[in-house]
Design a protein around this nucleic acid. Structure first.
Lengths: 251, 251
DNA sequence: CCAACACCCGCAAAAACCAGCAAATTAGTC
DNA sequence: GACTAATTTGCTGGTTTTTGCGGGTGTTGG
């Protein structure tokens, strides 16, 4: 493979995929990492690409807002996501909800895990696709601004045709008496459908979500297999939830 | 083997394979490496080929002016996207394809435009949702790695239930005789379905896409309402496409 | 705080390149 | 046909380019 040929190949790949990793190029072009780095350096010097740690981007690439959000969201959410990722067994079919916490699950999946994820959240679908080798299925529908998830009548009908092993849900509020609740009616319907069509359910909720109530219930606490939260949870809330039948995992 | 004969052979091989190594020529033409090098030097001096370390490339395939070309092409992509955005009328239902150019269309939509976009590309759906107030519908399916678009049997069936006013397609290659073509068979099917179910079609293609051919045809040039490209388009290619019935908009 | 990863620097081997020269081929002339 | 000049080709030896590797440094993310 000629030098120039390789560089033009890199440009092609980059314009096609919108980004590229050095490691990908090493594998695809069969040269050492140093050579790729030198090529990227040359191209960057010529202004053809923008170099970043680990790879390169086209110049003038606009970072999508979900990418930013994902970078910002760290801390206790990571621990919760990590624990949730550990629940997934090879070969399982998993419903996974939208939200920043569930999207983080993607980064904690073992690289060799073969499972199937079904979601209606665009950022989650992208995260899962890019960061794992699992099958990812996105449910179609109207895209909701801000939340970046799909909605619509077809959604529930499609969910009903699927029987999953596990559902990972993020709740807005968790309360011993009122269960897990959210403030968006349509969203609640979808989450309910997920739970209905799944053998087991785990709720992901930061400690700050506890003791609150939103209008639409998605599940009572004794209906879900586990609730994952962080160590900052208030003892009283914890006990109230356990009394209500919730199996709480604190990480 | 005569001198001239050898040189024309080199040109032939080069145009056939798109690149050639000195070592290959040594083996195939049964002459010493120095002779080949002298030939290549002559041809390069005459402007017939581009010499590179280890062999040669066709002229124009790899311009050394990476900088200009790339920067221009970003500007040209924007211009194409802007022109395409102007095609969309209020209230219309529009199929829109994946790819960087089509994703740029989002940023040129009037803020008060009310239209409906239907796509199978996740980045495009996100761009449209975030940068406009239009309805955006995402077609569901398995998410394809790298490309970040959905695929699957349900896709075509769903498209068939929709009758749109306009389709915006980005083609990999545009050729007078062979029409607009792409290299991914499934992708071609989806694009075809878009065109089939739409009253009008516009193809977005940078000037560098012209004169090339990929394996799968998505449309003949006389079947689409307009082809939008930039001013760098080669005059010959332009005429060839117009002769084939293409209505080309140069921006 | 640490492990893993990506990065950079300098080195050395391999490959490709170049310049100059001599042998071989060709062309033209007597 | 033989001689010579011109061109082409191949070879030798030395230089440059490219590439991969080891080791030290910087970044990232848990």
């Amino acid at each position: 493979m000629l030098n120039e040929e390789r560089k033009s190949k890199i440009l092609e790949v980059l314009s096609q995929r919108g980004r590229v990793l050095s490691s990908e190029l090493v594998a695809e072009l069969n040269v050492s990492e140093d050579t790729i780095r030198r090529d990227l350096k040359d191209l960057a010097l010529a202004g053809a690409i923008k170099r970043v740690h680990g790879g390169a981007l086209p110049i003038g690439h606009v970072e999508f807002s979900y990418e930013k959000r994902q970078k910002e969201s760290v801390g206790e959410k990571s621990a919760i996501a990590k624990r949730a990722a550990a629940l997934i067994c090879p070969g399982q079919v998993v419903f996974i909800d939208g939200g920043t916490t569930t999207a983080l699950v993607a980064s904690y999946l073992p690289k060799d895990l073969k499972a199937t994820f079904i979601t209606y959240s665009l950022p989650t679908a992208i995260a899962l696709t890019e960061q794992s080798n699992c099958h990812v299925r996105l449910l179609g529908g109207r895209v909701v601004k801000d939340l970046l998830l799909t909605m619509g009548p077809g959604l529930l009908k499609e969910i009903e045709t699927i029987q999953a092993d596990l559902t990972l849900i993020s709740a807005e509020s968790v309360h011993g008496d009122f269960g897990a609740t959210v403030s968006h009616p349509d969203d609640a319907l979808v989450k309910c459908a997920f739970i209905q069509q799944s053998a087991e359910t785990a709720i992901l909720a930061g400690s700050e979500k506890f003791g609150k109530v939103a209008p639409y219930r998605i599940a009572r606490l004794n209906e879900v297999a586990s609730i994952i939260t962080d160590t900052s949870i208030d003892t009283k809330e914890l006990e109230a939830c356990q009394k209500a039948g919730g199996s709480i995992i604190v990480v």
